[in-house]
Computed example of a mutant assay.
Amino acid sequence: MTLFTVEGLIRASVRSRSRGIADPPAVLWRAYQRWLTTQRRTGPAAGEVDGWLAAQQLMYARRAPGNACLSGLGRPEMGTLARPANPDSKGCGAVMRSAPFGLLRRGPETSFDHAVACAVFTHGHPSGYLAAGAFAWIVAAMVDGAGITQATASALGRLSAERDGKEVARALRAALGTAADGAPTAERVESLGAGWVAEEALAIAVYCAVAAPDDPQTALLAAVNHSGDSDSTGAICGNLVGAALGEPALPAAWLKELAGYELVGQVADDLVTEIENTATVSDAFGAATPAWSTRYPGS
């Protein structure tokens, strides 16, 4: 879902450049519908594939998708803040897919807003969507040059403006407080919860990254070695460590073992191309070139 989040953001940008207008949540909704198709089929159907990413066989695998994601995206209408899908769900699925919103280089506020607007497609509990917004805010602040502790502190300030932000804010304050006690341990991780719900998953990931700020291997090992939802907390922590230190700081041997490593790298490179090197995929009028719009249609 993270990859389809990136794809949706690229396509929203292409649509804006080529047509002069785009509604990012609506474009992301369609991107997640393409993800949902990959969970219902065993491979891309000839002549029915929409865009480059949906044509990749690797995407057609079920990796324990969350029920809220499946049911929310299976609804006939898009969830909104006024009418969110699954209003009682605050699982960590929306947080896990929200790092790309922080990479847009449009500031933490825009990243927060987009992440929240797209989180309510599947997770309608305030802690579910506000944790996603806070995560996107933290990543955006880090991309702008803040350290993870400073970025988290600024996200706490943003959450204070939300009537329903106290639960997520409390979890993040606990993460920062626990990180001050020294190197991460399983006991300290589990003092923050199990990670099955959004605010706990975000807190555990932030804690591990803050407690080992210059040691990504230690941070990631702590994030995945506990008795809770360790794959989710590991993924979120990996997003944070990557945003803070960049890919060269990550253990090279681990990266080589990742399923779809090359595909992930290509999608990431394409996001950088669209956001930071737009001229290389634009015609004389600023619209996407035919090759780029075929790869990422503006819809």
Rank of each mutant, 00 (worst) to 15 (best):
T185W: 10
T185Q: 11
A186R: 15
A186Y: 06
E187V: 12
E187Y: 04
R188C: 02
R188I: 09
V189M: 08
V189T: 09
V189A: 06
V189S: 10
V189Q: 04
E190V: 08
E190D: 06
E190Y: 02
E190G: 04
E190F: 13
S191I: 00
S191D: 11
S191A: 15
S191H: 07
L192W: 03
L192V: 09
L192F: 07
L192Y: 03
L192P: 10
L192K: 12
L192M: 06
G193M: 02
G193W: 05
G193N: 00
G193H: 05
A194Y: 15
A194T: 14
A194P: 12
A194F: 14
A194Q: 15
A194C: 14
G195V: 01
G195P: 13
G195M: 08
G195S: 02
G195A: 02
G195F: 10
G195Q: 07
G195Y: 03
G195E: 01
W196P: 01
W196D: 02
W196L: 02
W196N: 05
W196C: 12
W196Q: 05
V197E: 06
V197L: 14
V197C: 14
V197G: 12
V197K: 00
V197N: 13
V197D: 11
V197Q: 08
A198H: 11
A198S: 12
A198G: 02
E199P: 09
E199T: 00
E199F: 04
E200P: 07
E200R: 05
E200G: 07
A201I: 11
A201T: 14
A201N: 10
L202V: 09
L202M: 11
L202Y: 05
L202F: 01
A203N: 11
A203Y: 05
A203R: 01
A203E: 00
A203C: 04
A203V: 04
A203H: 09
A203P: 00
A203W: 03
I204V: 13
I204F: 02
I204D: 02
A205P: 03
A205C: 10
A205Y: 02
A205S: 15
A205W: 08
V206L: 12
V206A: 12
V206Y: 07
Y207N: 10
Y207R: 08
Y207P: 13
C208H: 05
C208G: 13
C208S: 08
C208A: 14
C208F: 12
C208K: 11
A209N: 01
A209D: 04
V210S: 13
V210L: 09
A211E: 12
A211L: 09
A211S: 06
A211V: 05
A212E: 04
A212V: 09
A212N: 08
A212Y: 14
A212F: 14
P213L: 07
P213A: 06
P213C: 00
P213Y: 00
D214L: 05
D214R: 14
D215A: 11
D215F: 05
P216D: 05
P216Q: 03
P216C: 00
Q217K: 14
Q217R: 14
Q217C: 10
Q217V: 14
Q217S: 15
T218M: 02
T218R: 09
T218V: 09
T218Y: 06
A219T: 09
A219I: 01
A219N: 06
A219H: 03
A219W: 08
A219Y: 04
A219P: 01
A219D: 13
A219F: 13
L220R: 00
L220Q: 06
L220K: 02
L220T: 10
L220V: 01
L221T: 14
L221I: 06
L221Y: 15
L221M: 13
L221R: 09
